[in-house]
Design a binder for these strands. Sequence first.
DNA 1: TTCAATACGGATAAATTTATCCCTGTAGTT
DNA 2: AACTACAGGGATAAATTTATCCGTATTGAA
Lengths: 133, 133
Amino acid sequence: MYERKLPIQEECGLDLIREVVFGKWKIHLLYYISQGISRPGQLQKNIPEATRRVLNIQLKQLEDDGLVAKTVYDQQPPKVEYYLTDLGKSIMPIINELGQWGDHNSEHLRRVIKNGWYCRRCNTLTTIKRTAC
Amino acid sequence: MYERKLPIQEECGLDLIREVVFGKWKIHLLYYISQGISRPGQLQKNIPEATRRVLNIQLKQLEDDGLVAKTVYDQQPPKVEYYLTDLGKSIMPIINELGQWGDHNSEHLRRVIKNGWYCRRCNTLTTIKRTAC
DNA sequence: TTCAATACGGATAAATTTATCCCTGTAGTT
DNA sequence: AACTACAGGGATAAATTTATCCGTATTGAA
């Protein structure tokens, strides 16, 4: 049981949204759920780079934060279906725009993220570009 | 000099945008710069919860990723001004929408982030709500 | 009877991000 | 002469997030 030590910022809308959607896979989860991919196993297949564990954690956080909810069917083997709450639905237009922005600028972004003007592998504050690594 | 060990995801637009804007203060920095707060000292005053150090790091990353650029005036004491690139400008409508969404739902969000259905201080996967801590 | 499919989560290690503290250098002000 | 404002960054510690590994339980199929 991890106990948080630093205070959570909640001054403005930007603070608040960061708290609820800035997990590694949260926007992906919201996106796929909005597309009708509702079961945990399916979500996992759609996000193969993520481990099952972290998806569970982030789904739980999205649920606790009120962006998604789930139906647990009382049967064996277990069956669970996630869906967006009204609050979750209300954020989807923005998340879709984020995805479109990323797609639209993907060529540039891939370039700078990977082997941009400096090597992203270094946490780098070097002012010498292109030669950091 | 930190060397990254896990691969950076870059499959889709959502991956890409996460890489460039999901730092703790990046959306705040973009917002204030878009509002004409251009000098490092001013940015710092507008984001007092952040340390000078991390703002420098994230400004550098935004710069390396091509969302902001800066003018360094050759004078003493030093003077630097940041501004949005075209790419940076193109993302501002979405960041503004994020902030508005957070503001609009701030009552709910503050509640669930702080003392929501579970206590956020615990990294919590407990199914027992409201009593975790 | 052994195995796959289903969903969930404990325990711990590793990776990454952020915080803390301190130092550089110059021009102007008190 | 000492002090301030200015922008930047090194070194390291702390905090947080994510990865890895393993175990629970039930039903139906091979």
